[in-house]
Write a protein that binds this DNA or RNA. Structure first.
Lengths: 176, 176, 176, 176
DNA sequence: CATGAATGAGAATTCATTCAT
DNA sequence: TATGAATGAATTCTCATTCAT
């Protein structure tokens, strides 16, 4: 799966033959088919795998801190995860919109969002977060994460913008 | 180009044979190749075409209004454009990250951003916009647009969030 | 026909689209088809045309000279013709073996040989030419012409061999 | 390679689809591409293969015989090789002038000529061969071989000329 | 359980020829 | 009579998947 991930991201899904994945993984092509029924399934499993790691990240955040701190921690931890694994982010970017990922897996992938949703709800109760639909706010936050990562990976190093500034803007956007 | 756009968005680039585009366009395959040297070039031209329309949108905005109003108008006009042409947005989503679009065209595509950058600069001068790097702010705004559209297209109709709420969040994020 | 000849020789028959011939000839594609029913016919007419010019060459040779002189003159005139029109030779080379030229035209193309055959016959009568089948001798001479031209066109200028030496070898080969 | 050779000669290179070669070879098309990266490479390998067989022929000739005998033997062995494998000769005929064969392979193909060149040199030293440039003489001999084979394959059986007569002419052409 | 050669459906692209203007 | 845009059959090549070893 690691070999596949790297190649799929670097060369694009339709320019990555299974034979090349096998070679990079140091196995035979047939071996891959012993573990994954077909190429699409392999890709789906990589997808779910990343999403699950993403979900686990939130366990690291100390839930005793005040809401704003937790919010910042969530975003920081998430963004740093992807900054350290750029191919994860690029993989999701390339696949999120693709018909290859099944609806079921796409749904599974959204589970991590629940945790943030809960945080936002308690934020609303303590009147530090705008009283809007949670969905609206989540969407907005997602955009913030997406744009930061996207920009960070496209831009030359010196033009990269500061993470704390970015998180501040996101927070200012949602705070009451 | 319209026929191609629809199919490319609906079925994905690598699942759309030129023969099908030709059929949908009501021409022969050869005819397409009389106008576009190859599939990639066709896709690039569609890309540039959308980006140019996007750029022209800003001409509609009344530049005598106060900065906040203009900002809201820009965002509204842009988002409504894509809401009316969902396939435009999905096309860009699918292609922005793809190696098919040439660097030259990608650069051309970013021209429309300049106008917003100018607005932000005067916003900073009048101290209504945060004093951060323009690039940082643009990235943040991009995320706001992206997230709204993305959510709007994925979600069932009744769960869609209000545009004005969303624009409010973006503004709160960047305002001083 | 001239435009076609040049292109066909330079790029090969199957790499020369009719559209390119038309462009080189300064006409429209349709115009070609007003004069030649199809590509093969065009090629055949070029072939016959060259062969006819080749035949006419022999009219220049003074038939009052002794046989050996006439033989040398024939060969010289022929070889110089092709040296001055290398594309003629290359065209024949490329097409002689091809199924594109009809049998009828191929036969027509061999007419010029008759004149040489007559010369050889009188050479045999005066016992200056070997008493073999005329066909055998003609074949041998043809090989001599072919090899000289072939070598002359392939080789870098300074490695080219002398025509008179070559003709001498051919004559020594057939003389009694 | 055998299936390809037959078809390429019979139908011409550009009238022989890879699919037909595969069918004739009793394999799938993909299998061919597992062994030859593309059609041109396949053709080149056939070319080199023939040329190497041609080179090996000369090993059969007894080098203790007198020069004239060796010369006759060389020519005989070579011509008989091609008479037994007419498609080899037709293949070379069709390809020698073609841009498909790479310069490198064309060069490799000329190796067999070296052996004959050596023979001619010692012939010149013993003053049985004309004192001309070796290249000139080789060209002439090549023409002799070409013409005999060409004629032999084109002509109806009874009109074919005798090999010994032909070789005699070639020898008379080069002898001192 | 691992392997990788064989396969052929499917895709992009070319170009001879037609025919409305 | 000249034109050249439109056409689609035909061609090369790729690659997911199978299955005998």
């Amino acid at each position: 799966m690691n070999a596949a991930l790297d190649l799929l991201v670097k060369k694009g899904i339709h320019n990555t033959p299974m034979s090349e994945i096998a070679r990079a993984a140091g196995t035979g092509m047939g071996t891959i088919y012993n573990y994954f029924p077909n190429k699409e399934e392999l890709i789906n499993e990589i997808y779910v795998n990343i999403r699950m790691q993403e979900k686990d990240l939130f366990l690291e955040v100390d839930t005793t801190h005040p809401i704003k701190t937790r919010f910042e921690d969530y975003l920081t931890v998430l963004i740093e995860f992807f900054l350290q694994q750029p191919s994860y982010f690029n993989f999701l970017l390339q696949l999120e919109a693709s018909p290859i990922i099944t609806d079921e897996n796409r749904k599974k992938g959204r589970e991590s969002v629940e945790i943030v949703a809960d945080l936002l709800k308690s934020g609303q109760e303590s009147r530090v977060v705008k009283n809007m639909e949670i969905g609206e706010i989540l969407t907005f936050i997602g955009g913030g994460i997406y744009s930061y990562l996207r920009q960070h990976m496209d831009a030359p190093e010196k033009e990269r913008t500061s993470l704390s500034n970015h998180i501040q803007m996101v927070w200012d956007g949602i705070k009451e």
